[in-house]
Amino acid sequence: MSFLNYFINGLSLGSVYAIIALGYTMVYGIAKMLNFAHGDVIMIGGFAVYVCTSSLGMHPLIAVLISIVVCTVLGITIEKVAYKPLRKASPLAVLITAIGVSYFLQNLALIIFKSDTKLFTSVISIPLISLADGKLVITGETIVTIIACLIIMVILTLFIKKTKAGQAMLAVSEDKEAAELMGVNVNRTISLTFAIGSGLAAIAGVLLCSAYPTLNPYTGSMPGIKAFVAAVFGGIGSIPGALVGGLLLGIIENLSKAYISSQMADAIVFSVLIIVLLVKPTGLMGKKMSEKV
């Protein structure tokens, strides 16, 4: 039973990773850049909810909606100000700029909210479920996180398959120039991708802070890196890959915390990533790329 408990908790953590990894993977697929500031957008999302519920006393659901709006606007702004002028620059220059944005968000939060860790009150008010005489305990947060992840996956897949904007995203990720020639507005598509990715980051931030109820300016950075690993693990650029990568990563992390060593959990997660990449250099679901001479 305890195994099942750890497994379900891992699934819940993995769902959060998967939602964050979606943001990474979509942005990478379209803009071909590693958006290092993504983890910090999560933190901003968490703080937005914290301010709305704790200081302004709003209803949690409204707070979550506000947080999504804040992060979406933030994502679009970051893209417009920092990344758009560098569209033709080297990938490394864009990477460093993203790191700069990440520092900026962290330090802005540090000045506004100070460095002390805040206690985050969960926005989810579903009671926990106790099965098999209390041996198997599933919290409301766990259920909501897993369901939210599944709903997001379904909606996102439908959006990309069925809508014009989604198809435009696919086209831009395949070949930017060709898409432009076909009349796709590349700039608007990239902005849309950042908006969706950042909105998802807000949701991930709320879910993460509800499950692990602490919040400080560095909250987003480690989950951000882990989710980035998850995205690479599943094959960066692939949406189902982000889901699989995220879930696997969460499960591996929780099980190794439970059965091997809690201090070694991160090392084990990273080792699994290395092994996967050595066997399959483009991740679990990544596309194989042939090289032209």
Partner: peptide, 24 residues
Amino acid sequence: SDYRMLIYSIVLIGMMLFNSSSKA
């Protein structure tokens, strides 16, 4: 004090934009 890392990050972004953006 508190603003130094914020300024550092702005300088960093500004330098990258000045160095590599197509307008610059």
